[in-house]
Amino acid sequence: MPVMNMVQALNNALDEKLGGDPNVLIFGEDVGYFGGVFRVTDGLQAKHGLTRCFDTPIAEGGIIATAIGMGAYGLRPVVEIQFADYILPAFDQLVSEAARLRYRSNGEFWAPLTVRTPYGGGIFGGQTHSQSPEAIFTHVVGLKTVVPSNPYDAKGLLIAAIEDDDPVIILEPKRIYNGPFDGHHDRPLKTWAGHPKAEVPEGLYRVPLGKAAVVREGRDITVLAYGTMVHVALAGIEEAGVDAELLDLRSLVPLDIEAIVASVRKTGRCVILHEASRFGGFGGELSALVQERCFDHLKAPIERVAGWDTPYPHAFEWDYFPGPARLVAALRRAMEY
């Protein structure tokens, strides 16, 4: 089976969909001839043609607005916002238009667009190339928000997103495009080679939206994570020496509430890990859901480990980034409660 990094897996998904569905087209800043600043659309224009994968003006609102219009016509546009930090000029289009078109037109019109956007820190990108804005999308009813953590899921989730008839935002953790990252920034870089999830089948397959993956089974504590933090969580669990169950949520909306509840009812403890700043983050919603549905099973307060409530500081990237050490501390607090 071919071994791919996440960039190649995403590229392969786009290639498959362009080849198989004439209604799929790709556009965004620098995605055409150049193939995208992270190379995710590399070669697609040359292979599939100028009108299937093309550059746009620098206007994120315009990119999303035209994608909605194309979607309403019957196409399945896949657009790239170069960095998630730059999606905000398109926010009105996402919130007021894409997310509500189906509802307000009583199903006459809908917007089956897919928005791909690299997010997250750990690349010394400073405050405008590092943010994790998932919670501002998960709060919007009508938007689906998906976060892959490995090449296999990236391809399967992207194909499922493109085929989905509702707007889907795929937040691509750019820190793990080229290799898994466990938060130990001072250790040698790893590539995806040898990782079981880097084996990516040819052809179309789907990872369904709304299905979490159990990355590691355990009895004593549940860890909820997504994106880069899945790898940080694995490292933290090993270092803490606890028998933790790790769920990779993969899809935040729709959310696999059954998998979360089943795990926490089994373990009785829950730690939530995300890179975004803590206050108002997606961890708050997860914490509330677990408390509401698992209260009688909880043996310890739910812990949240997250980025600090500051902008992402360039010099203090690794002080901001919630690495394994902070997860270990939270796991121990929960276990010793």
């Binding site: 010394f124 990108g125 400073g126 405050q127 405008t128 190339h129 902008p311 360039h314 010099a315 203090f316």
Partner: peptide
């Protein structure tokens, strides 16, 4: 982004 940085390490270089 060092100890002498007038912006105290908050910004990407040259911003």
């Amino acid at each position: 982004s060092n100890a002498g940085d007038p912006l105290r390490g908050r910004q990407l270089p040259i911003l």
